[in-house]
C-alpha cells in the first residue's frame, strides 16, 4: 500500500541537546502505527515536526508526497491532530468547538457522528470550562477526527479516558482506518496499542530502534511455557537430562523451539513420575518487547 507519511533522516536539537537522530519511518495509507518510547525519547517532537509546528535541523517530511515544514503547510489540509493536551476555549461549548473547526461540507453529519461515537451527546452543549479531564480529552480527539482527515496524529489519546471511552475510541479509530485513514498514535498504555496498531515504531534516545508490524514484533519475542509441578527441583533435573533448555528463572520456564517442545516436556515429566499441577503459555507482548528494546545497552540500528 502507498505510504501516506514519509519521514526521512529527521534531525532535531534543542540548543546543544540533540533530540532526534536521523529518524526514518513511513506510515502506509489505512495503517495504524504505534509510536512508543520512554519519556523524553522524542515522540512529541516527531509529531510536532510532522505537523510543521517546530523547525527541524535536517531531514525530509512528506504527507501524500507533499513536503511539510514550519513554513510549508499545504499538505496539512487533510490532517487532524491532538498533541500533548487538548486546546480548549473555556467560553465555548463542545459543539461550538466542533463548529469552529469542522469543514463546511457535511458539517452537521460529521459532527453528530463523532459526538455519538465518542459518547459526548449528554454534555456537548455545555460550556467546556465545566468539562472534566476526560471530557476535554474526548473533545480534543473529536476536533482531530471531525473532518475525516487522511492522516491523524494522536499523542497519548487515552489520557484520562475511562475504560468504556477507551473502547469507543479504539473501535472508532479501527473503523476510520478500515475506511482508509492513517494514524500515528503514541501512548504509554501499551496493551491498548497492541490491540489497535498494525505497525510499531519503538523510539529510544531519539532513534528508531525497531520498526515492524505488530504481528512480527509479538512473534519475534516467541512463546514460553511456565510449568508448575509437585517437585520443581526434580523436574528441572529431569528436563535438563532430556536435553531441554530451561530459561534461567526460579520457576520452570521453557521457550518454545518448535511445535513439539511442549509435548516433549510433558512426556519427560510423566516418564519421570513427576506430578504436573499447572501449565501456562506466555506470549511475549508489546510491553515486554518494548522493555527489552529500551533496556538493551546497544540498540539495534534502524531497519
Amino acid at each position: 500500500m502507498a505510504n501516506l507519511l514519509s519521514v526521512q533522516q529527521l534531525d532535531k536539537s534543542f540548543g546543544n541537546r540533540r533530540v532526534l537522530h536521523g529518524v526514518n519511518f513511513e506510515v502506509a495509507a489505512g495503517h495504524i502505527v504505534a509510536l512508543v518510547g520512554p519519556n523524553g525519547a522524542g515522540k512529541s517532537t516527531i509529531m510536532k515536526a510532522v505537523l510543521g509546528l517546530i523547525p527541524t535541523d535536517g531531514g525530509h517530511l512528506t504527507i501524500d508526497s507533499q513536503p511539510v515544514s514550519i513554513t510549508s503547510h499545504q499538505a496539512l489540509a487533510h490532517v487532524g491532530a491532538l498533541i500533548e493536551y487538548p486546546g480548549i476555549y473555556p467560553f465555548l461549548t463542545g459543539k461550538q468547538h466542533l463548529e469552529l473547526f469542522a469543514d463546511k461540507e457535511n458539517r452537521d453529519t460529521n459532527m453528530t457522528q463523532i459526538v455519538e461515537a465518542l459518547g459526548m451527546t449528554s454534555y456537548i452543549d455545555h460550556k467546556a470550562k465545566q468539562y472534566s479531564l476526560g471530557m476535554k480529552q474526548k473533545l480534543g480527539i473529536a476536533q482531530a477526527l471531525v473532518n475525516h482527515p487522511k492522516l491523524v496524529i494522536l499523542d497519548e489519546p487515552m489520557n484520562g479516558l475511562d475504560p468504556q471511552a477507551v473502547k469507543d475510541l479504539r473501535d472508532y479509530i479501527r473503523k476510520m482506518a478500515d475506511q482508509g485513514t492513517s494514524f500515528l498514535i503514541s501512548s504509554h498504555i501499551l496493551s491498548e496499542l497492541e490491540k489497535l496498531a498494525d505497525d510499531v515504531l519503538i523510539l529510544n534516545h531519539g532513534k528508531i530502534v525497531q520498526q515492524s508490524s505488530m504481528g512480527e514484533l509479538v512473534a519475534s519475542g516467541g512463546t514460553s511455557y511456565v510449568i508448575t509441578t509437585a517437585d520443581d527441583a526434580s523436574a528441572k533435573t529431569a528436563l535438563m537430562a532430556a536435553g531441554l533448555q530451561l530459561v534461567p528463572a526460579e520457576k520452570i520456564m521453557i521457550r518454545q523451539q518448535n511445535e513439539k517442545t511442549l509435548n516433549q516436556v510433558l512426556q519427560t515429566l510423566v516418564n519421570a513420575n513427576i506430578e504436573i499441577t499447572d501449565v501456562v503459555k506466555v506470549q511475549h507482548d508489546l510491553e515486554e518487547s518494548f522493555l527489552d528494546m529500551v533496556n538493551t545497552p546497544t540498540t539495534k540500528e534502524d531497519k
Binding site: 505537523l51 509546528l53 513554513t71 491532530a81 500533548e84 493536551y85 486546546g87 476536533q143
Partner: peptide
C-alpha cells in the same frame, strides 16, 4: 495570548494556513 494560555495555539497553527 489566549491561544497560548488555553493551549489552542497548536491546533491553530498545524493546519494548512501560513503563520
Amino acid at each position: 495570548a489566549m491561544e497560548f494560555q488555553y493551549g489552542t495555539i497548536k491546533q491553530l497553527l498545524y493546519r494548512q494556513y501560513y503563520r
